[in-house]
Simulated scan of single mutants.
Amino acid sequence: MTTETTTAGIATGSRAPVAIVTGGSRGIGRNTVLSLARRGVDSIFTYHANRAEAAQVSAAAEALGRKAIALQLDAGDSGSFDRFVQEVGQALAGLGATRFDYLVNNAGTSLHNAFAQTTEDEVDSIYRIHFKGVFFLTQKLLPLINDGGRIVNISSGLTRVAFPGVAAYAAMKGAVEVLTRCMAKELGPRGIAVNTVAPGAIATDFSGGMVRDNPEMNKRVADITALGRVGEADDVGPMIAALLSGDNRWVNAQRIEVSGGMAI
């Protein structure tokens, strides 16, 4: 068997590198899967409920000459992670692999509520998805990620700039940023780099399409952004794919904001 090297410098034999992208059926996650496909990377990506939407992503990746296998996952249900890891093993076998190379912890939901009105149930829900889920899913997947691999945790521009109504969400993303640095330190002996990507306001269906579909909100964001518009998923997915590449192999434990210069 010949030995090839991925863009991250990982020996993979004759197969393509493999990424796992949570929340890969829509928005930034979908764009990341397809951006990776354009770089020759196969993916295993998760969706929460919409199987038809996930199938469209798989078909789009196939049209780009790569494979993208969809697996159902509730990122807030840590009790399901052992089952999911078993399914990942089966999916890897279908890709001719036993391990994967890149992990993008992207899955998430929004929460908009004033601090004084936010309930304990709301905080618990956002915690399970955005922090506990990232922590334990990554932990469960560690035996399957190649040494020299790369992990990207998705955060938010809201950890840098405070707006009303996002206290719980922003706090959990802040926790993910601290977690990222700790992971980079502990996984460094395996050559695994861990970084945070923090998108600004992006015109997707996230938060019910609040930025995409509300002209007033869209203009408000554009007015405080140096490049004069709101972000698109296509502004973020290619950046994540590039960060995973060998060109950025010495970038580690960093928070990289992708916001077009929002609120600077």
Score class of each variant (00 low, 15 high):
196 T>I: 11
199 P>D: 02
168 A>Y: 10
222 A>G: 01
161 V>Y: 07
202 I>E: 04
177 E>W: 09
210 M>F: 12
188 G>D: 03
255 R>E: 14
181 R>V: 10
223 D>W: 01
167 A>W: 10
253 A>E: 09
226 A>Y: 04
214 N>R: 13
246 G>T: 12
246 G>D: 04
254 Q>H: 09
215 P>K: 06
185 K>N: 11
190 R>C: 08
225 T>P: 01
256 I>A: 02
208 G>F: 08
252 N>A: 01
215 P>Q: 04
174 G>D: 08
220 R>S: 15
245 S>G: 09
247 D>C: 11
234 D>S: 15
249 R>E: 09
229 R>Y: 07
190 R>N: 06
216 E>M: 10
161 V>D: 08
215 P>C: 13
255 R>A: 15
256 I>W: 02
252 N>C: 12
257 E>F: 14
164 P>D: 11
239 M>T: 11
152 V>Y: 00
259 S>D: 15
232 E>I: 06
252 N>V: 06
259 S>K: 09
214 N>E: 03
155 S>L: 01
206 F>P: 04
218 N>W: 12
163 F>V: 04
163 F>G: 08
244 L>M: 07
202 I>S: 00
239 M>R: 14
178 V>P: 05
233 A>I: 02
157 G>T: 04
219 K>N: 14
185 K>A: 10
154 I>K: 01
224 I>T: 14
179 L>R: 07
227 L>N: 12
207 S>I: 00
243 L>T: 06
243 L>I: 14
159 T>G: 01
244 L>D: 02
220 R>M: 15
226 A>M: 06
258 V>W: 06
192 I>Y: 03
231 G>I: 01
162 A>W: 04
235 D>N: 10
253 A>T: 08
245 S>N: 09
245 S>W: 09
172 M>E: 15
197 V>S: 01
230 V>H: 07
225 T>Y: 05
256 I>D: 05
205 D>K: 12
237 G>H: 01
191 G>K: 07
194 V>A: 08
226 A>T: 08
150 R>A: 14
257 E>V: 13
156 S>I: 00
253 A>D: 13
154 I>H: 00
160 R>E: 11
197 V>Q: 00
234 D>P: 08
198 A>W: 04
165 G>Q: 12
235 D>K: 03
258 V>N: 08
183 M>G: 10
171 A>E: 00
202 I>A: 03
208 G>Y: 00
233 A>D: 01
194 V>L: 13
213 D>A: 13
196 T>E: 02
173 K>W: 09
243 L>C: 11
250 W>Q: 12
177 E>A: 15
177 E>Q: 15
